[in-house]
Design a protein around this nucleic acid. Structure first.
Lengths: 145, 145
DNA sequence: ATACGTGCAAAAACTTTGCAGTGAA
DNA sequence: TTCACTGCAAAGTTTTTGCACGTAT
């Protein structure tokens, strides 16, 4: 198994560590700006450029992963074991596929679409989250109030 | 409280039609810029702003769909029947799930992830396309941890 | 004539980057 | 010390928008 936090980062620095810790400490798959806003109060002289540089570095080093762009902002994930993501089309929430369901999903998707090989570790499924379903924030197929 | 568009949209104009025709005429899920480059030679006075405005309009009216952002550019699809997409992680190619496989995929994904309701009509699956598999442009699959 | 459509360019939103000073090993 | 790391701000990209004019009805 993989070490929890033993990254292949070249070097450590106070800010770099803080950024990675912040990323790993939340499960909402934040954007660079969100990380910045979280850290700014406790590290007033941190800059957005540093957040971007380090997130980019983590991505390269595979200490973090990019989930792609949601509402114009790139979203990151500090959980590095391969897993799929769910994005709510209504509120934009990004969630991990629960570990216990990942296997089931892997099995379901372990077939080739013609000659396209599906990579379940990066798959992103769209749909509607529990909250939006409850609050009926979900478009009924083909209507709008 | 979003009502159906209050503003009246004039349905047709020479350029608007050209944009929608161009979008529907290709299967590579182009970006605004790609549409622009396709139309510019035959319609020299078309502007990028018009492409963006109309693609946005089509999206609102569901005459086209956005597939999200690939390599920094939003990609569009003129095929409006609900279907999933495949994106090659290696070359960025965006493909439709073949019609005859969509049903199979729908069946596989017709289960709830906890309380998340999957919308197969917008699902995007990542993986590797035939060309990249052939050319071995695919990262070795055994990449540990 | 009226109201929508468009070109143009400026602005906005997000991200990257050059430079010089700071910090880690 | 050495060289990576950072703040800052300028620059780069993609997308949006205000304005005045053009176009369809």
């Amino acid at each position: 198994m993989s070490r929890v936090r033993e990254r292949k980062i070249k070097k450590h620095s106070f800010k770099r560590d803080a950024i990675l810790t912040a990323l790993c400490g939340r499960e909402d798959h934040p954007s660079a700006r969100q990380i910045y806003e979280e850290l700014k109060p406790s590290i007033p002289d941190i800059s957005l450029g540093t957040i971007y540089r380090n997130l980019g570095l983590f991505r390269e080093e595979k200490a973090a992963a990019s989930l792609g762009v949601v509402n114009g902002e790139e979203r990151f994930d500090g959980r590095t074991e391969g897993h799929s993501h769910l994005i709510c089309e209504s509120c934009g929430k990004v969630m991990d596929v629960p570990r216990e369901l990942q296997e089931e999903l892997d099995a379901k998707l372990s077939f080739k679409m013609n000659s396209f090989s599906i990579d379940t570790s990066k798959t992103v499924l769209y749909g509607y989250c529990e909250d939006c379903l409850k609050n009926r924030l979900v478009p009924k197929s083909g209507s709008d109030t």
